[in-house]
Amino acid sequence: MAIERTPVGPGAGAASPAAPGTVPVALPGTQSRTASRPMTPRRIAERVVFIVLLLFFTLLFVYPFIWLLSASLKTTTEVFNNVLIPNPPHFENYTNLIGQQPVLNWAWNSFVVSVLAATTVTISSALVAFAFAYFRFPGRNLLFGLVLATLLLPGTVTMIPTFLIWNFLGFNNSLVPLWAGNLFGSAFYIFLLRQFFMTLPRELFEAARVDGANHLRIWWSIALPLTRAALVVVFVFELKAAWTDLLKPLIFLHDIALYTLPRGLKAIVDNPSIGGQKEWELLAAAGVIVTVPMIIVFFLGQRYFLEGIATTGSKG
């Protein structure tokens, strides 16, 4: 750090609530700002104001979900009636929707595509990222620069030929183009994982070499287990990206039975007998069905989502 540590002023440092036995050294970046300050009435008041403000914004961010859930359990005439808990709740909206549209098919397709996309991209990106972190060979920096350059390339430029390539290979109107591109790694994940592999001490690999392990073995048995957390970050990121994608399903899927959930939801929005008839409760139910699996995945992998996204900022 270029900035010289300034001595902490009187009062602020002396009264800091350091637990007995701990060394009273301020660790930059590891301490929340309030922890090092005395709780004067003014600071308490400040904190209350902040929390009230944050609660207000939380309401703005979260209330639409609750409203959507509530709308999905109402009748058409009740959707906009400003009653939060529908009485009685119309759970049959969901069964009606599933009866009308092949929603279960779509859910299965989404599941297959997301899991395949996340698995393949994690393995392939880890393989490539490890090569960039581990091997020393001429042209490495040039190739890695190329990886970074593709990060800035807008996907829309390659969209049309990519469609033509999959079409040429006979995979138009199939689920394959939605995940198989991930067999070849993804620039962003390669970049992210390389940073993690570089933190592993080289001696570890050298010792394994002496013991006769080949490079593939070193990658699989030493490097991968040690970077498990980063691999989970990549996996959940891609799971989310594949699950939520609309563009590729719009381009490649033409049979209704092949649709993923987002493509299916767009079809429901477009459907004149639902959107046109203003059966909003069915739209809302479809929205809930598409979103809930992601919310579950998010709560299971919350730590990885939030730490992963924070890491992108500092590495970028």
Binding site: L68, W243, T244
Partner: peptide, 18 residues
Amino acid sequence: FYLPNITPAVATGTLFIL
């Protein structure tokens, strides 16, 4: 705050129609 980020774009669009 992060919850809307994991919402599929189509669901966000649908929600905002309402």
